[in-house]
Design a protein around this nucleic acid. Structure first.
Lengths: 134, 134
DNA sequence: CTATTTGTTATATATATTATATAACAGCAG
DNA sequence: CTGCTGTTATATAATATATATAACAAATAG
């Protein structure tokens, strides 16, 4: 899986890593149980500090996406995190704002929903393709 | 319009203000052309520094939501910002991640879309009610 | 005219976050 | 033993966030 960091972005590097890894899991580029590069390896590959990678991994561990074995390294959990109440609450907050912004800018409900649907289908399709190839 | 700050939140105060004001516009609690409290007034009301309010106002000005008159203060723009290419790009990035996260957590496409639709309808309905009352 | 209000600008300070660098540690595999 | 894991510790630097205080120009209210 290819990870790309935008060093001009306001978004912290560890947060960019976190998001790309979650997107990678959604696409099926990263499978449950799959091992991730070691913190040192990944840090060297993308030219950042190992502590930055470590932070991303640990956030993902706390969220329930990864398990980290002190000796083997990080791997994607066999069972992905569930949609807990805390998750629903934060999702609602985030979505409400995004929808408000879109609505103010004159984006129609249908157009917005179509986009969401398209993104969902992209992940579903991507996973399906990869599962067939195995 | 009531603004509530969560001082425990990781989200910066000015960002909380920014989001609530956009949501207020979406709901129709704030109408185009309507004046906002002065930076000093609002800062005092919610117990924060005037520069924090000023930052929120200026971010919203840069985004095209507000006009700020040096003597009269801030007011909601008569014409709200459009969905520019930059906006679409940032929306796509944001939405793709959110969808990925939801998908990984086992949230169904229909459930996700239903929520988005509900939020849209809330804003539409809220605006309609307020327009009828005027 | 005077006093008050507006956003703006400037300076200073404190704190937290982000990212880096370097080093050392324990545990395990080859 | 050697080399690989993540982990811990310490230090440093830059940036973001928030506050405090003061002063300014421009307009308005009395």
């Amino acid at each position: 899986m290819i990870l790309k960091i935008d060093f001009e972005s306001e978004m912290p590097i560890y947060e960019q890593l976190r998001r790309q890894i979650i997107e990678g899991i959604a696409k099926g580029e990263l499978n449950t149980g799959e091992e991730l590069p070691s913190v040192r390896q990944l840090a060297e590959d993308i030219g950042i500090n190992l502590h930055t990678v470590n932070k991303a991994y640990n956030v993902l561990k706390d969220e329930g996406y990864l398990v980290i074995d002190r000796r083997k390294g990080a791997m994607v959990k066999d069972i992905l995190p569930e949609a807990t109440k805390e998750y629903y609450d934060s999702l609602e907050k985030e979505l409400k704002f995004i929808v408000a912004d879109a609505y103010c800018r004159g984006m129609g409900k249908d157009e917005f929903l179509k986009q969401c649907e398209r993104y969902f289908d992209e992940y579903i399709e991507s996973r399906r393709e990869r599962e067939n190839g195995r």
